[in-house]
């Protein structure tokens, strides 16, 4: 059984071109209500007819230029967005790491924010409390954990967010270019953690611009180009084709 399956998935975005009175109640009643506007020039297909399967325990790397629909894809898998056409099926608990430190509040302490962030990402209160020490040590922030996080450097902030993220224990992990945080030593620790996930058979979908990582670390590569799957298969081949086309 596939962990993730997309069938004929399309997603469109409406453009918001600033017109006089364009988004007001008045225009809604005067114009949009009677002439439902859905001009093709106002619509962008962020993804068009995307089909693919991710098997359980597979690591998939998604590459493509900016605006090719990579993040939209992750948002569809994590149910943040609904497809306009097609179906997305997911088996297993998903954690989407689209942003580190979701829900962090600058006035609150690191410790308080870890608890908030953990619950937002789907842990129960007792789960997060039992992992609290581990999370703090992983982030190497024991000394500052009771300071408000507005006093943190951006590196510390990211480390804390990442540390919570890798301690939620989902079956499927969606990662959007958040790996590059902290210094070299911390990055290594993160990689160790990711390798561990891979070893214990978690399904991972990774959006990244780090082509070397896709080649060496993923089981499969997908190249998205303007919302269409341009190529899919052996990560080495996909990366090579992508590099040839774009560089």
């Amino acid at each position: 059984m596939a962990a993730i399956e997309l069938k004929g998935v399309s997603k469109k975005y409406r453009r918001h071109i600033e017109r006089p009175l364009a988004t007001t109640l008045k225009s809604y009643f005067l114009r949009d209500l009677w002439h439902r506007r859905d001009d093709s020039k106002d619509v962008i297909w962020a993804l068009h007819n995307v089909d693919f399967k991710v098997g359980q325990g597979t690591t998939v790397g998604i590459i493509g230029r900016n605006g090719s629909g990579k993040s939209t894809l992750l948002k569809l898998i994590s149910r943040i967005l609904k497809p306009d056409v097609g179906t997305v099926t997911v088996h297993g608990k998903v954690a989407a790491l689209l942003e580190l430190g979701a829900g962090f509040h600058p006035e609150l302490t690191g410790r308080e924010n870890v608890i908030i962030n953990g619950i937002i990402l789907g842990l129960t209160k007792s789960e997060i409390k039992s992992k609290l020490d581990e999370i703090i040590d992983f982030a190497e922030l024991r000394e500052y954990i009771d300071d408000p996080i507005r006093t943190y450097s951006s590196g510390m902030y990211m480390r804390l967010g990442f540390s919570v993220a890798v301690h939620i224990d989902p079956e499927i992990l969606l990662i959007d270019e958040v790996l590059a945080v902290g210094d070299a030593a911390f990055t290594r620790k993160c990689m160790d953690r990711m390798n561990h996930f891979k070893k214990v058979g978690k399904t991972m979908v990774l959006v990244t611009h780090d082509l070397r990582m896709v080649r060496s670390w993923c089981d499969e590569g997908i190249w998205l180009n303007r919302g269409v799957v341009q190529m899919q298969g052996n990560p080495g081949d996909v990366v090579e084709a992508y590099a040839k086309e774009t560089l």
Partner: peptide, 18 residues
């Protein structure tokens, strides 16, 4: 409910902290 509770607490703590 746990999330709602923690978000309310966040709201209250953040408003009066300091």
């Amino acid at each position: 409910r746990a999330l709602i509770q923690i978000l309310i607490i966040r709201e209250l703590k953040a408003r009066y902290r300091g």
